[in-house]
């Protein structure tokens, strides 16, 4: 090993730090939140139709998990897809996401089908906001990647 390469090796940093940015995939669709919210709806139906305590415990656990995914998908849309300029077309955007996320919390704590139905309605409103801001055309791959 030469003196030069030995010196360089000695001086070379041992630790790497990051100054990273986000790398968004650019694919957004409220359908992801909708499907998880439908799971909550269906789990509540099944919960009501079954008296078995083990089944009911599992149903509650699954509802919690699915509801958390609804929140995640709503947050991704809110933080990453929607931009300040979209507020012109959807002035109530922040309030809509606030309400939708609060409704998810309600669904987590509830076994009332009406709560899950209200969540689906709010997600449909998010879907409408996504559509009028051009989301459908811009944020999905046209056809399947070949």
């Amino acid at each position: 090993m030469s003196i030069r390469s030995a010196t360089l090796r000695f001086l070379e940093p041992r630790t790497t730090v990051q100054a990273h940015c986000d790398l968004p995939c650019g694919i957004y669709d409220p359908e992801q939140a909708r499907i998880e919210a439908e799971s909550c709806y269906r789990v509540i139906e099944k919960y009501a139709a079954n008296e078995d305590s083990t089944f009911r415990t599992r149903a509650i656990a699954i509802k919690e998990e699915r509801a958390e995914l609804v929140k995640h998908h709503l947050d991704v849309l809110w933080h990453d897809y929607f931009k300040p300029e979209h507020l012109e077309k959807v002035p109530n955007l922040h309030d809509l996401f606030w309400q939708a996320n609060k409704q998810v919390s309600k669904v987590k704590a509830s076994t009332d089908l009406a709560d899950a139905k209200r969540l689906l309605e709010l997600i449909d409103e998010v879907d409408a906001a996504w559509k009028i801001t051009g989301g459908e055309a811009k944020t999905r791959v046209a056809g399947r990647p070949s």
């Binding site: 940015c21 986000d22 790398l23």
Partner: peptide, 14 residues
């Protein structure tokens, strides 16, 4: 960062 194909920087604003 958007021009470079990235999303917002990951910093205190995040």
């Amino acid at each position: 960062t958007a021009a470079a194909g990235f999303g917002p920087p990951i910093d205190s604003t995040r």
